[in-house]
Nucleic acid binder design. Structure first.
Length: 481
RNA sequence: CGCGGGAUGGAGCAGUCUGGCAGCUCGCGUGGCUCAUAACCACGAGGUCGCAGGUUCAAAUCCUGCUCCCGCAACCA
């Protein structure tokens, strides 16, 4: 049996999740369900939280809580997304778990043994007010914009990873699609980044600066792992890499599909840093990295200060679980950022789900009320083919979820058109045979559409199947003002 | 000359690789229908396809130059 391992990014839990986080999880969920429920593959789907960041320590301080409590509380909000949006992930990894520490340290040791870790002076601008290092680009006229003070130049010894050593190997892996990067223009971007020359990067911080929070560097009491080795290794530590458990063997070692779904902002770390670290440790690299674009709200970046945050739960409250899934998926184009607003969402929900799919279900169920419709599996397979099954699958193989949904909605329109052209309500009165024939086709089409909807709108798909059998009219998606 | 993406009717997008009547959804107007969630279907108005050149029988599509917008630009998820 084919196997499929898919992960989402692990999120910082220094605040509640917003729609952008939610959209990524739903996208990954569609792909996971497609492989698990449609293709019937042995699928493992992972999500999780990145808890070892200094940002969490700072967030906790602000909130007047212990880091443990602060992080646990926010993790709860992220885990709530599972129920809210019907996510089907198999496990939610927290990077504060002991087995994650053990796995990250194990990987560190292998990289060290490979001779890829070395100590070097790290020089940076440290703002005492922010208690963190600032990038030069973040400084305004050489000063920290938040505190309006000149940062200290601090030098500190850190461990560095020899990324430079893997430049050629990475280029080959990406060029040949051994690591396939989607959409394709992102592959181009990564290749041209490699061509500019890869430099080593720092992978640790002093224990003091890390505020004693995070994964300790093996064999060096004074250093804590910085984000890369720690966070990225979650994709294998969650599979019990530390003990080389069954999950790890099954889904990482003996599997051809190791897929990461991430946002474009962290593309480089997944396509370059992470594979290089795996190469160093002698472990298999990911086979696919899908980079989604970002959601904006009212054409602005999602930002607390702008006050334009929409919580996932709010969308669920208004449009229902599958309604929210649909809107998040359909609002995020494959190749560019997508914008949402209450107005746009309401419009799309009404057009596609209430007036489109939902109304179609009502029409067909009512018209079929007094008919006894049966069909064979073979007939259903033929209906699937006629309803763009191949094209929809092809879109999903390319991770183009938006296009798959467009194709599905096209089928809904076709069915509505077919009803109009054949006027079954008239046939019911004067041509019983033709009426039965027309309604059988419509039932088959709707059954096919329901089957194709499974990865996207699992609940609605089930309800359609049920209602076709029971013939009890339902309002699948209530029209919203 | 840092890298990548984008500019197509009121809005959102496809089409560009492989040149050939400019297409889809929403919104708007008119008509039709009544099985349905005032839903559905048809027709229509609306675009010199960012700008300027070039190649070609033919350019949104290929070539050259330019303008504007967005993301990334390295240890920042």
């Amino acid at each position: 049996m084919n196997k499929f391992y898919i992960t989402t990014a692990i999120d910082y839990v220094n605040a509640k999740p917003h729609v952008g986080h939610a959209a990524e999880k739903v996208q990954a969920d569609v792909l996971a369900r497609y492989h698990r429920e449609v293709l019937g593959e042995d699928t493992y789907f992972l999500s999780g939280s990145d808890e070892n960041s200094l940002k969490n320590v700072q967030g906790a301080k602000k909130a007047g809580k212990t880091v443990e409590d602060f992080v646990a509380e926010n993790v709860g909000y992220f885990q709530d997304l599972k129920k809210q949006l019907n996510l089907s992930y198999d496990y939610f990894i927290r990077t504060t778990e002991p087995r994650h520490f053990a796995g990250a340290q194990k990987m560190w040791k292998l990289m060290d043994e490979a001779g890829d870790l070395y100590k070097k002076e790290y020089k940076g601008f440290y703002c005492v007010g922010c208690e963190e290092f600032k990038m030069e680009k973040d400084l305004v006229e050489g000063k920290c914009p938040e505190h309006n003070c000149e940062p200290e130049v601090v030098e500190e010894e850190n461990y560095f990873f020899r990324l430079s050593r893997y430049q050629d190997k990475l280029k080959k892996l990406i060029e040949s699609d051994a690591i396939q990067i989607l959409p394709s223009f992102r592959k181009k971007e990564m290749l041209s980044f490699i061509d500019q020359g890869l430099e080593d990067f720092s992978v640790s911080r002093s224990r003091k600066r890390a505020e004693n929070w995070g994964v300790p560097v093996p064999g060096d009491e004074e250093q804590i792992m910085y984000v890369w080795v720690d966070a990225l290794s979650n994709y294998i530590t969650a599979l019990d890499y530390a003990t080389e458990g069954d999950l790890y063997k099954k889904y990482w070692l003996e599997n051809e599909n190791r897929v990461h779904v991430i946002g474009k902002g962290i593309l480089r770390f997944h396509c370059i840093y992470w594979p290089a670290m795996l190469l160093s440790a002698g472990l298999p690299v990911p086979t696919k990295v899908f980079s989604h674009e970002y959601l904006t709200i009212d054409n602005k970046k999602i930002s607390k200060t702008l006050g334009n945050v929409i919580e996932p739960q709010e969308i669920v409250d208004k449009f229902g679980m599958d309604g929210a899934r649909y809107l998040l998926l359909a609002s995020l184009p494959y190749r560019s950022d997508g914008d949402i607003s209450w107005e746009k969402m309401t419009e799309k929900y009404n057009a596609d789900l209430a007036n489109g799919l939902g109304n179609l279900v009502s029409r067909i169920v009512k018209l079929s009320e007094n008919l006894d419709i049966t069909y064979t599996d073979q007939e259903l397979l033929e209906a699937l083919i006629k309803n763009n099954e191949a094209e929809i699958k092809h879109s999903l193989d390319e991770f183009d979820i938006e296009r798959a949904l467009v194709l599905l909605m096209l089928r809904v329109r076709e069915a509505n058109k077919f009803i109009e052209e054949n006027k079954p309500w008239e046939l019911a009165k004067n041509d019983a045979a033709k009426f039965a024939e027309v309604m059988k086709k419509l039932n088959l089409d709707l059954a096919a559409i329901a089957r194709l909807l499974v990865p996207f709108l699992p609940d609605a798909a089930n309800k359609i199947k049920k209602v076709l059998a029971d013939k009890e009219a339902i309002i699948l998606f209530q029209r919203i003002k």
